[in-house]
Nucleic acid binder design. Structure first.
Lengths: 254, 254
DNA sequence: ACATGAATATTGGAT
DNA sequence: ATCCAATTTTCATGT
């Protein structure tokens, strides 16, 4: 799986290495080095010289990782072109993208390691517990939201956007249900309000609005009240089995 | 910068390696291996056996990278605890987080390489062209939005959220300005509308609403019109010099 | 290609 | 600790 490694390469060797393995297009290339990183495109940024881990994947995506955080310090998805050259005695990689136009330039000031990794394409990935699943479950069991609720539509498109669940309650009133998989904020309230207003504009029937989520923030609940809308608590996920046997922790956070 | 490397380790050696270097807490640890990955928490997911690059940073963040895309296949930010053990003859790493409660479990079915990288903390990172910068610039030069505009407040908190710029125009009317660094969508229009309504509720003075962004989507512009709000085009970034000399591209996208 | 909305969003700042 | 809004959000999807 490890195609090649280069320890403490000089600039020329690093350029050759990158040239060869990036060109092949069938492996992931990594460089650990003191770098200077420049980004220009949708925004512009400069990283002062520092230690970074640079990863270039087969699709041309580039990410520059610092010592913490999941998110890279600097990145670029699916670049169209990658150039490598020596500039002022330093190996430099430049990755460009056309739409939108942007560019990352990494200068490898003091490369410690370069390696090429052959990652075979991997199997399927299964995800459960998304908003889509929650919507499906609630559409099948609307009584969880309110007894007597009858679902008319899922993902009903309107002028102002898609209504997650459109239903009729036991009293015959129309009900707009907005689902949030996680704690609902003011944005969700406003989204719901938008939909309810939209329905009211096209119908003279009474219309209720229900925000269904595992939790709400206090300001959001406030605003719901003042707008005459309702909140209904629904659990986001089926129970998580969480009592596996423990070993002593390896990691002590700073 | 490269503290240690282990090629094709057996499960026991890998566990020892991970134990040692994760415990040290001052280096980034990587494993290239055929893996099986399980996530359970805010959602639940399973990755079938496949080749992945696993990265554990000093802050306990875990990311499992596949062969393409900037985004990891599976990840977890800032875990509280990491455990390593042999289960059924396979080295397994389990990273847990308490708030919210979630867990990633990686089984290293066939490890090709494990390495520990000492990344020194890096220098400052400067970002230009963010919304904060744009706000600052426009607060200093409000005439770019409209001649005669006088800024009263920046980031004015209201009941329904913070107003980016609150101003008075040449005719004495109040002006709510919503800034977007990128193309403005309907969401931005509703945000602006929310703020304008909020101000009108507390003041009988005439109130205008201006959406300032480098571009708008057509539906958003439509809705602006129907709500009696305005759009003003402002460039998000200072000019980007883009005519550096080119070399032949190394990367040909599939 | 463009617009829209979800995401295990993540992250930083304010309260 | 909680809440809130920006993000080079990325990403999938519908039109």
């Amino acid at each position: 799986m490890i195609r090649a490694q280069l320890h403490r390469p000089d600039p020329a060797a690093l350029v050759d290495f990158l040239d060869e393995h990036l060109r092949s297009g069938d492996c992931l290339v990594q460089v650990v080095s003191e770098c200077e990183v420049l980004y220009s495109g949708r925004a512009a940024s400069v990283a002062e010289a520092g230690d970074y881990l640079v990863i270039v994947k087969q699709d041309g995506s580039v990410q520059v990782h610092g010592h913490r955080s999941v998110k890279p310090v600097n990145w670029q998805p699916q670049t169209d072109d990658i150039f490598v050259a020596i500039e002022d005695g330093v190996a430099v990689m430049r990755a460009e993208r056309f739409q939108p136009s942007e560019m990352v330039r990494v200068a490898f000031l003091e490369p410690a390691l370069a390696q090429a990794v052959g990652l075979r394409e991997s199997g399927m990935f299964v995800l459960m517990g998304s908003e889509a699943e929650m919507q499906q479950a609630l559409a099948r069991h609307p009584e969880v939201i309110e007894p007597g609720l009858e679902v008319l539509h899922r993902e009903l498109p309107t002028e102002v956007g898609g209504i997650d669940l459109f239903a009729r309650d036991a009293d015959g009133a129309l009900v707009v249900v907005e689902l949030k998989r996680s704690k609902a904020t003011q944005e969700a309230v406003h989204q719901l309000s938008r939909y309810v207003d939209g329905v009211r504009r096209t119908s003279s029937e009474p219309v209720r609005g229900i925000l269904a989520a595992p939790a709400v923030t206090a300001p959001a609940l406030n605003q719901l009240g003042s707008l005459g809308l309702e909140f209904r608590e629904v659990s986001a996920l089926p129970g998580i089995d969480d009592d596996a046997d423990r070993q002593p922790s390896l990691f002590a956070p700073v």
